[in-house]
Simulated scan of single mutants.
Amino acid sequence: MKEFSADLHIHTVLSPCGSLEMSPRNIVRKALEEKLDIIGITDHNSTRQCREVCREAIKAGITVYTGVEVTTKEEVHCLAFFETFDILEAFQAYLDRYLPDIINNPELFGYQVVVDEEENISYEEPKLLISAISQNIDQVEAEVHRLGGLFIPAHINRQKFSLTSQLGFVPPDLIADAFELSKHTSVEDFLKQFPYMRGRTFIRNSDAHQQEAIGSIHTRLRMEHTGFDEFRKALQGKEGREVIL
């Protein structure tokens, strides 16, 4: 088994709250500097920048887990990751169907653009991506798992846009592959407040919106290689694969 460093919650220039410097090229360059083996691309309610990040990452020898940060009807943020571009596009169709038709105001919320390898704008998303989609958390979880993806509620300890802030607790019947904690708490401190979460799998990531945050906190994964199925096994703690915090 090998140990891999992973920052699985990174926003690109496509997220309205992301810095305009968060291009695929710059993200990969910073990931190399931070000696990350794996990065997760998780823009708000959109997967459209994932392909270009993958192209850049392949050149650098970095693995990308392609995904998204979904805002559910309850305004809970959840990470979802998918193995192939075809499945990713199927989930994008789901997001497009349920994202409300609220037009973005770039001066108020920020630009929402997809850029190519030369950092030229190839697409601008007209809908406001930080809106909540009209599907609740159970519906989102069901769709992610129907497509064979991994479902991870994001920064569950945060004071906003989290399970604990929006619902007040973590539903015991929620089917999640792992739970993300922000850099502002440790697993030990979180379990003191929510002891019923003992035995669950946790990951910690940067939730980077600016270059300097990439890799500032990361998760170590013990796996044979960086393939998606190995990631799934690590979250499940199967066959010697595991998450190390």
Rank of each mutant, 00 (worst) to 15 (best):
I62H: 11
F179P: 02
R55G: 10
Y98Q: 09
A93G: 14
S46V: 10
Y98D: 04
E119Q: 09
Y65S: 07
V115F: 04
G110D: 09
F161N: 13
D189I: 09
A60Q: 04
I62K: 11
I58S: 10
F190V: 11
N120H: 05
V53S: 10
Q112M: 01
H184W: 15
D96E: 14
A178W: 01
P126W: 02
L95C: 10
E74I: 04
F169P: 06
L174M: 01
F169S: 11
L163T: 07
N157M: 10
V68C: 00
Y123D: 08
S131K: 04
A142Y: 09
E118H: 14
D101A: 06
E188N: 07
P106T: 03
N136T: 04
A176W: 00
D96P: 10
D86R: 11
D173C: 10
F190Q: 10
P106S: 04
V187L: 03
L147H: 02
L108K: 15
R48C: 09
D138L: 11
S122V: 15
N120W: 00
K183P: 11
H184A: 14
A93C: 13
T47A: 04
L150T: 06
I102G: 12
E107L: 15
N136Y: 05
Y111L: 07
T72K: 06
T72Q: 08
F179I: 04
L88Y: 01
D173G: 09
P153F: 00
E117P: 07
S122N: 02
L174H: 03
Q135G: 04
D138R: 15
Y98C: 02
P171D: 08
P172K: 15
V187I: 10
S182T: 11
T164H: 05
L88I: 12
E74N: 00
